[in-house]
Design a protein around this nucleic acid. Structure first.
Lengths: 135, 135
DNA sequence: CTGAATCCTTCACGATACTG
DNA sequence: CAGTATCGTGAAGGATTCAG
């Protein structure tokens, strides 16, 4: 990449000022929930309730709003079946798949510093691990 | 990596609950300023005022507090010279260099979606570019 | 030149209740 | 089952002032 971040001009998109591409990227995929959602949809199409189940801590409101935003950005697709009770399926799009490398890189770094700080995730037993700060 | 994000247990570090490695990583390098600062210090050691100059929009308070946090995480080092007026130099550490791949990946994705949305950065002339939403 | 402290605004996110 | 609306809270970040 030849563009130099140090001399990067600001730019305005949709009435909001950005200082650099990183900030711009994180506007679309940042926050607590967007990447975890994309990660799951990258594995398979999922229904609303299914997503809710695999994101134990997300609230109803957040899941709903985050899905709506991701759909607006063209990162996921929503297919609603006109049945009762309602059935809605979410899938990742090609544009959505572009963020998978970002997720993988950040996750990997996350694992790195977790190891540094002595946080271990033993297999898949979903225990809550308590770790103290000292590093 | 064999660990499955879908079944990842929560963990607590320094009295704060995290749901996954991504969230953990972004606790240390997230926010508006930490990655831009690390990116600059990766190129060369810089003084406080120098950093301030190349980060046109950061406020005095933010630069100060972000430097202190990064130092606390061991991502940068602070060398103060007992002269008057004060002279302080900041350098990136080996731990700090670990986040460079993250910065590069996110930046690259940022450039990708900027292009998608028709935002062009022509060379290094620091003009403010105005772009409307329609994509 | 470098840095700390105070006050204030904005916004992400959670809790809860209501709907077809 | 899927979704919206309202209200409240905390944290991030900006403006400003004081200081060695």
């Amino acid at each position: 990449m030849s563009t130099n971040l140090s001399t990067m001009p600001d730019f305005i998109y949709d009435n909001r000022l950005y200082y650099n591409p990183m900030e711009f990227a994180l506007h679309f995929i940042g926050g607590t929930w967007k990447m975890p959602i994309l990660w799951r949809l990258n594995k398979k199409m999922m229904r609303y309730s299914e997503l809710k189940k695999t994101l134990p801590h997300i609230t109803h409101k957040m899941l709903s709003s985050q899905l709506r935003e991701l759909e607006g950005y063209g990162l996921i697709e929503r297919k609603a079946y006109p049945v009762v009770p309602p059935k809605v399926e979410y899938t990742i799009t090609d544009k959505g798949r572009d963020v998978i490398p970002v997720i993988e890189t950040i996750s990997q770094y996350g694992y790195t510093i977790m190891k540094e700080k002595g946080i271990s995730i033993e297999g898949h037993k979903a225990e809550k691990v308590q770790v103290n700060k000292n590093n």
